[in-house]
Structure formats: C-alpha cells, structure tokens
Amino acid sequence: MKSFKAYFKKEILESVRTNKYLILFIGIVFWALLDPLMLKLLPLLMKNYLPPDIAVMFSTFTRDTAFQTFLNDLFQIGTLFIAFTLMGLLSNEVSLKKLVFPYSRGANPAGVVLAKYIHYTVTISLFILIAFLTNYFYINRLFTGGILSIEIVLKSSLLYMLYYSVLLSILLYLSSLLKRGIIAGITVLVLGYTLSIFNQFKVVRAYLPNYLLLKAADIGYIFDNSLISTVIISFCIIILLVFFSILRMKKIDVA
C-alpha cells in the first residue's frame, strides 16, 4: 500500500512533467473534434470533383455513421498514441535502473505495478469519456438523422474503456518482459490491429477483446448477450496479465 501510494503520486507527477497527460489527451480527444468536422467539410469541398454517386454517399452521413467513423478513427489513432506514450511503462524503469533506489529501500513490486496500471487505466478512461461526450456534442450540431443518444454514447464509451484496459494490461506485461519498450509498443499495435480481422468470423469474435469495438459501434444493440463472454474474457486477461507483471517484477533483476 505504501509503495502503491508513492508510485501513484509519482505517476501523476511524471505524467504532468513529461507531458504524458497532454499527449494522451490530444491522442484521444482531438479526433473527437476533428473527425465530425472533416466528415462535414470534405464532401462540401470535393463536391465538384467527385462522381455523383460517391457524392451522394458522402452527403448521406447521419449522426450514427458520423459516430461510427469517430470510433474507427479513435481505435486506429488513439491506439497508436497510447502504445507509443506508455510503451516504457515498466521496461524503462528496469533498463534505466530507476528501480535501484526504490527496490533497495523496500518497494513492493505489486504496489508499483498496480499503481501504474490503475493510474493509466483511470486516465485513459477519463479521456475516453471526455472524447465521447465532445464527439456527441459536435455530431449533434453538425449532423441530423440516426438514433444516437447520450445513453448509446455512454454505453459505447464503456466498451472502449474496457478495450483499452485490456490493451494496457497487455502493454504492461510486455513492457515488464522486454528490455526495450518500443518492441512492446509495436507488438501491442500489431496485436490490436490484427485482432480486428477476427471480427469477420462470427464463431471466434466474441472470445476476443476486439469484439468490444465491434459492439461499441453497433448502435442500438450495444449491450446484448453476445458480449457476456467477451467481457468475462477481457477481465480475465486483465487480471492474469497484471498478476504476471507483478510476478515478473518480483523476480526481475533491477540492477
């Protein structure tokens, strides 16, 4: 508990001083503003250059499709930002020998790992909530049609939060395993993107975390029974990987 508190405070200080909050905020929230505007603007500017059938397709964007476009972009760009900002979560601590003093003064690895995981999960979840609400606000001003409601947006944001919690636990574990953070970051990216391919296969998709993203965009049917297994599996992955990270940090040579 002592180590947890000390490291939680340390992560806050670190995120402020090394601009991690700023980078994560921009990586997640900025697209919520930019996306709907671009979607609105692009067809206007391109109108005279596009063949009529595609122009029609552009002009039929509703609030629902605009929201779905944002979800997709957030996944693609947000994941990139998160992976590269947090790839050194544990590997930097070990390889730069930052843990020599804390460990030599009796820091508890479980406290260190939990503080880091919980701090960034909360931070990212908060930014996701802000992003979803801003996006909803913008979409309502710019588009019409569709059944999008605040309830749907909140439900969808919950699934995104859970998804990024899973991704973060993978990043955490890889970062404890590998000496170089960049490899952990790239692995998480590749994993995140390729797992989305499985969303094409009805048999397996409900057992993979990327199904959360599919359901988050399934406006009107976000929460249904097919999610139960996905949510359970997601929590299992989180608990297991955080636990393995703690074990790893207990055994690792920090000097």
């Binding site: 508190k5 000390a6 340390k10 670190e14 020599v100 003093f101 820091a107």
Partner: peptide
Amino acid sequence: YLPETPTFYNYMNAYEYLNFVGEII
C-alpha cells in the same frame, strides 16, 4: 545502498525524490 551510478526520476527535484523514497519506506 549507495550505487556507483545512482539514477533518479530526473523530472523530480531533490525534495520530491526524498519524499517519494520516504513514502516507500
């Protein structure tokens, strides 16, 4: 322990670092 090449969290100042270690202890 005084290691040969000590490493700290460079973004902290000395007060913050010592308080941080104090909290761990």
